[in-house]
Each structure stands twice: as structure tokens, then as C-alpha cells.
């Protein structure tokens, strides 16, 4: 992200940019490791079933945890790279100026919705915490398993705030802080 930071930006912006790049790095590691673990876990379960006539009792639960982790952490990554799916047919034909306004509104509304959802998810986690629900196999508190949900939603919301900021502060139409709309390979207009 740093290469895209506007010239002469303040220390605060540089600091934020640095923090975001560290978050991006951590998200990348989480996604890569989770997907590889999913494969290992599922393959291990097949081997245990066929080779040793017994299933790994935790395999299902672990996969479920990984899916939730990947979905909500990945949502933030996808927002950072402007990869979330949208129907751009109408905005694509708008001239640059209204498109920029539209993009700003879209990013702000999306962020607001995700913030609200993050708050609901915290309240959901609290209710899970209070009722002390445990997973059936590993007997881990359920709220721990889902603790990535509010975090992921919050990070995703922040990405959309950044996208709005990019549209307001910089020239051009931005899909996210790092990706301009209608960039090269068509990926951005998703």
C-alpha cells in the first residue's frame, strides 16, 4: 500500500499505511495457513478412516473453525484488493465525477453496514460467552471459535472507510485504498 500513499502525506497517514501493511501481511499468513490446514486436516481424516478405521473426532469441528476464520478474515483482504463482487454495469457507464461520488457513498454505506454487523457479532459473542457454550467434540468455548468474526467484520469495515477516504482525498475513482476502479485486468470492476 505504501507505494500508493499520496505524496507529502502526513505522518499520521504514513503510520496508518504502515499499520495496514502489517495487517495485510498477517491476514495473508492466516489465509494461506488456514487453507493448507484444511487440506491437511481433511486428508488426515481420510487416512485415519481408511487406514486406521477411525475418524479424527475433531476434524469436522476444526474445518468449521477454519472456514469461519477464512471467510471473515478473507473478507477484509478481499476488500483491500477490491475483490468483493458487485454489479458494476450502471456505475461503469457514469462519467468520472459522479462515479467518484457514487463510489464514496457505496464505500461509506458498506462500511456502516459492516460496523453494525460487527457490533451485532460482538453482542452474539457475549451471549455465547455468558451461556458458556462448548463445541461438542473438542469442548472449546464456542465464543473463542467465532472470535474472528467481529475482528474480520471490523477490519473489512475499516477497509471501506479507507476506500471512501481515497476517493475523497485523492484524484481518480478508487475501488479500495490500493486499487483504482477499472484497473488493467478487469478485476477491479467486479
Amino acid at each position: 500500500m505504501s507505494e500508493n500513499a499520496p505524496a507529502g502525506s502526513s505522518a499520521a497517514v504514513r503510520c496508518l499505511t504502515y499499520i495496514d501493511s502489517r495487517i495485510a501481511f498477517v491476514e495473508r499468513q492466516i489465509l494461506a495457513i488456514s487453507v493448507m490446514l484444511m487440506a491437511l486436516n481433511t486428508v488426515g481424516n481420510v487416512i485415519a478412516r481408511i487406514g486406521f478405521s477411525s475418524s479424527l473426532f475433531f476434524a469436522e469441528e476444526f474445518n468449521r473453525f477454519l472456514i469461519v476464520l477464512v471467510t471473515f478474515v478473507g473478507a477484509s483482504t478481499a476488500a483491500r484488493y477490491g475483490r468483493h463482487i458487485r454489479m458494476s454495469a450502471i456505475t461503469d457507464v457514469l462519467p468520472a465525477k459522479p462515479r467518484k461520488v457514487m463510489m464514496t457513498i457505496i464505500a461509506l454505506v458498506t462500511a456502516a453496514l459492516l460496523f453494525a454487523l460487527a457490533i451485532f457479532s460482538i453482542s452474539y459473542l457475549l451471549s455465547l460467552y455468558q451461556s458458556n457454550r462448548l463445541t461438542p467434540s473438542l469442548r472449546i468455548p464456542v465464543y473463542l471459535i467465532y472470535s474472528f468474526v467481529p475482528l474480520g467484520l471490523l477490519l473489512t469495515a475499516i477497509q471501506y472507510v479507507f476506500a471512501a477516504a481515497a476517493n475523497i482525498l485523492r484524484p481518480g475513482v478508487h475501488l479500495s485504498y490500493t486499487v483504482k476502479d477499472m484497473e488493467s485486468d478487469g478485476s477491479s470492476s467486479m
Binding site: 478412516r49 478405521s53 477411525s54 475418524s55 473426532f57 469436522e60 467434540s137
Partner: peptide, 10 residues
């Protein structure tokens, strides 16, 4: 079901 002698699959 393990105790019964089977190979249980969840």
C-alpha cells in the same frame, strides 16, 4: 459404538 465393537463415523 466403539465400545460395541464398530468403527464409528460421525
Amino acid at each position: 459404538y466403539d465400545t460395541f465393537g464398530a468403527d464409528p463415523v460421525a
